[in-house]
């Protein structure tokens, strides 16, 4: 008798497990389906895709075409340069500003901080008109610089690093003062290393933010030599007028695969970051 109950419970558990895996698989399939389809079609000849067929001779032809006939590599390079430069510049300017708000004594410090904080409420999207005109007046249009300079600093970055710097024990600063460390030295040798998690997070945020810029580069660049990758894809999509789907899918894949690889490799980091931030 007891035996049967145990078997039943076991069976129950097993059915439950199968159900769990089924659910997980279905959900995973739904989430990843657009990727799979995009990748799959990027290997098919466009003539097949245009007929609505999802089978055909697989080949690298679309990738060859994307690399040889479109400036996709140039787009990627542009984005890489812009994002890296912007990331470092943003980290630098936001961190020194945050440093000032935490470790320096000066008049109106808190007032100024609130002024900075207030800018978080002003969306860049609502300011593109004057910003465009400013960029034009400063002769920045059609340069890498135009995609970097407006984002050299941000209220968000300053806010975040200020929070991080505030975690630094006061004794450290005091003993640094006693040792005669200058602000630059303390900033470089103590403040930055101590807050490296926040710095890294802000770096990721800044890099991704720059990488995903769409509207601003679209307004301020007029040549493929400078276009970053998001606007490059827009350009390709518009040039091919949705007729050369194979090429478009291949270009999209070329853009997404590096980020996916980084994401999968970075899993560990993301998770530890999460543990740190988990709600207690």
């Amino acid at each position: 008798m007891e035996n049967t109950i145990a078997t039943q419970a076991n069976l129950h558990r097993r059915v439950g497990l199968v159900f769990k895996y089924l659910l997980l698989s279905v959900l995973a399939f739904i989430v990843i389906f657009p990727f799979i389809l995009g990748l799959w079609t990027s290997f098919l000849p466009t003539t097949q895709i245009a007929k609505g067929a999802l089978h055909g001779t697989m080949s690298w032809q679309n990738y060859v075409d994307a690399f040889t006939q479109t400036p996709i590599l140039r787009y990627l390079l542009n984005s890489l340069v812009i994002s890296v430069v912007q990331m470092f510049a943003h980290l630098f300017f936001a961190s020194i500003a945050a440093y000032a708000f935490v470790f320096l004594e000066f008049k109106y410090r808190d007032l100024l901080f609130y002024v900075v904080l207030a800018t978080m409420m002003l969306p860049f999207e609502a300011e593109v008109i004057p910003n465009f005109q400013t960029a034009r007046t400063l002769h920045l249009l059609n340069h890498y610089a135009v995609m970097i300079i407006p984002f050299l600093t941000s209220a968000f970055g300053i806010f975040m690093l200020r929070q991080a710097f505030k975690q630094i024990p006061l004794d450290l600063k005091e003993s640094a003062d006693v040792d005669g460390l200058s602000h630059w030295q303390f900033y470089w040798k103590v403040a930055l290393p101590y807050s490296r998690i926040s710095i890294l997070t802000l770096a990721a945020y800044s890099f991704l933010g720059s990488w995903n810029q769409y509207l601003w580069p679209m307004l301020t660049t007029f040549t493929n030599r400078l276009r970053p990758v998001q606007d490059g894809l827009r350009q390709l999509h518009s040039e091919e007028t949705a007729t050369n789907w194979g090429l478009i899918q291949a270009s999209a894949a070329i853009v997404v695969i590096p980020t996916l690889i980084v994401l999968f490799i970075g899993q560990h980091y993301f998770k530890s970051g999460l543990n740190e931030g988990s709600v207690k």
């Binding site: 989430v31 389809l37 606007d231 999509h237 899918q249 996916l260 994401l263």
Partner: peptide, 27 residues
């Protein structure tokens, strides 16, 4: 879990292109 986080790596343009293809009325 890895798969569930995958869309984090997808930018706007890529998402739009993938889905445009799925929404295409004829193909």
């Amino acid at each position: 879990r890895t798969i569930f986080t995958a869309t984090m790596g997808v930018s706007v343009s890529v998402s739009a292109i993938f889905w445009l293809f799925m929404f295409n009325p004829s193909i």
